[in-house]
Amino acid sequence: MTKDVILSISGLQFDHTQIDAGEPVEIITIGEYYKKNDKHYIMFSEVTEGFTGTTKNTLKISKDTLDITKKGVTNVHMIFEKNKKNITCYNTPFGNLMVGIAAKDVIIAEEEENIDVNVDYTLYINYEHLAECSIAINIKSKDAKNFSLEQ
């Protein structure tokens, strides 16, 4: 994997009132990658519409864990561990939320120039069940020979 990478992050929520899910929310951006102590680190920035400044994001990927840290317009440290529930405070421009994440599955597939992460989890806000969710993350070397934005 090269230092310069392209990330695709797609999320989907299903609440108990929906029969079928809505459209996934997806971002595609560039980032920086490095590996240390068998953990993959990806850093990228995002802009929040309607606010000045950016949010710096760090993804830390290990054997069966996805760790997301956001610092800036929003601030949070979320940990997705298979069969574990983690609670954190999510600081947004609109106020703070207690967020609970109960990850049911964390699947990580690594190749030389590609990493795929898929997480299925239950989301709780202020100790109330909100939705069943999934996140799909694809990290590709910017210089990959078979580079494509389509999956």
Rank of each mutant, 00 (worst) to 15 (best):
N37H: 14
K104Y: 06
V119P: 03
N91R: 09
I137S: 01
T65Y: 00
I68R: 13
V5C: 14
M43V: 03
K63Q: 06
N126P: 01
F147P: 05
G72D: 05
S10V: 06
K82N: 11
F80W: 14
D143C: 03
Y34F: 15
I68T: 04
E81L: 06
G100I: 11
Y121S: 00
G22S: 00
M98Y: 10
I137W: 05
T52R: 15
G50P: 09
T69S: 15
T88M: 10
N118S: 13
N118R: 10
I30R: 14
G100E: 13
H129C: 04
F147E: 05
K63D: 14
K39D: 06
C133E: 09
N57W: 04
M43H: 04
K71A: 13
K35F: 04
K39T: 07
V106L: 13
V76H: 00
E111S: 09
V5G: 08
L97S: 01
K56V: 01
I61A: 08
I9T: 00
L149Q: 07
E128M: 05
E46Y: 08
I115S: 05
L123F: 02
I61F: 08
I79Y: 00
I9F: 03
D116M: 10
D64N: 15
T92F: 05
L97M: 04
G100H: 11
V106P: 12
N91D: 09
D38P: 02
H77S: 13
I115Y: 03
T58I: 11
T88H: 06
N118G: 05
K60Y: 00
K70M: 08
E110F: 03
D120E: 05
P93D: 03
V5M: 10
L7Y: 07
S148C: 12
N146S: 14
E132F: 08
I139M: 09
M78K: 13
N126M: 00
N86S: 13
N37Q: 12
M1S: 08
Q13D: 10
H40C: 06
K35L: 04
G31P: 02
D38K: 14
C89K: 13
N86E: 07
N146F: 11
I61Y: 04
C133G: 02
E132C: 02
V76F: 01
E150L: 03
S62M: 08
T17E: 14
V117H: 08
G31I: 00
D67M: 09
V73W: 10
T54Y: 14
D120M: 01
Q18N: 11
D105C: 07
L7I: 12
